[in-house]
Nucleic acid binder design. Structure first.
Lengths: 163, 163
DNA sequence: ATACATGCAAACATTTTGCTTTGGC
DNA sequence: GCCAAAGCAAAATGTTTGCATGTAT
């Protein structure tokens, strides 16, 4: 049923393998930008940033809260994430699930995802962004500003096709 | 706050202007495919298809239910939509909202959206699909099958920038 | 007649808000 | 000390399921 994609990546832990190093520099950079906006440096801020930076795939608020293991509740994480999104340190993704996903914005990071609709595995797509040009064009034509985009591919992964 | 984009298109009804004609042929075609899969032709099926075919933008289950005006409840619409998605008559979209959006799959229809993060207006992008090639490439490289994609741009519309 | 589809109601998961307390500056 | 942030609890929202009834075939 459709419920098989409720917990992306869960059934195929190997999809988590591309564990990006938690890159302290990236975190410090983000913190610096946040502090410039007047945000205070709290334990939760560090914990959430660290959690996101260490993840190879977008996380939900629930997942982040779980990862904090008691060091924060969903409401606090929710508000923290809102601030991070406002500050453009974190990006929000839709991903066709009940919950929203959040991903740290890093220079040169991936912008497209490949998701299996059966097992929920989430993988990155290592391609130069194919819509950068269109986005540029769009900004000029539509009058919209601060353009961002979300590009996701959905399909059936080789493993699930066997079944 | 983030709550401003809870009701896409609501504040700017003019974004609904490109009202696609409910195209009876498209509906009949969809029904034919559904019947071939063993689905029964019910009042709700017609109503939901008609509703989706007539909408210029994706709709949530709640919106569809409201549009039916008493002729169906959320649970029935939910199950109907699941069947339609299974049958590839309807496409599911994430759109970074709490609710999921659904759109009828039509030959030659738009595949990308432009959304204002402030007022929630949803507009279509009239561009040839810029990722068709990548999708093809991806299918070959990743081993994934049945590939579909979702491409959405988020930004600030000209109206909202004034404010 | 049989199974699929619907409606109603209830359960669930996740987000969102209110309010009090904590802790960074 | 002041005010943003965290914690706790509860409300809100939208999805999902169970079960009895209806209805297309």
């Amino acid at each position: 049923m459709a419920t098989t994609c409720q917990h992306p990546g869960h059934k195929h832990p190997e999809h988590r393998r591309r564990q990006a190093a938690p890159d302290p520099a990236a975190i410090e950079d983000a913190v610096a930008r946040l502090r410039a906006r007047g945000l205070r440096r709290t334990r939760l801020l560090d914990a959430v940033l660290c959690c996101l930076a260490a993840s190879p795939r977008p996380l939900t608020i629930g997942e982040i809260t779980t990862a904090l293991d008691g060091a924060g509740d969903p409401a606090s994480v929710y508000r923290m994430i809102e601030r991070l999104v406002q500050a453009a340190v974190v990006r929000r993704l839709g991903l066709q699930e009940r919950a929203l996903y959040y991903q740290m914005i890093l220079p040169g990071h991936h912008c497209a995802w490949l998701i299996c609709q059966h097992c929920g595995a989430i993988g990155e797509i290592d391609a130069g962004c194919p819509v950068a040009e269109l986005e540029h064009h769009l900004a000029a034509q539509s009058g919209y500003s601060d353009l961002q985009h979300e590009l996701t591919f959905y399909g059936t992964c080789p493993e699930c096709r066997k079944t």
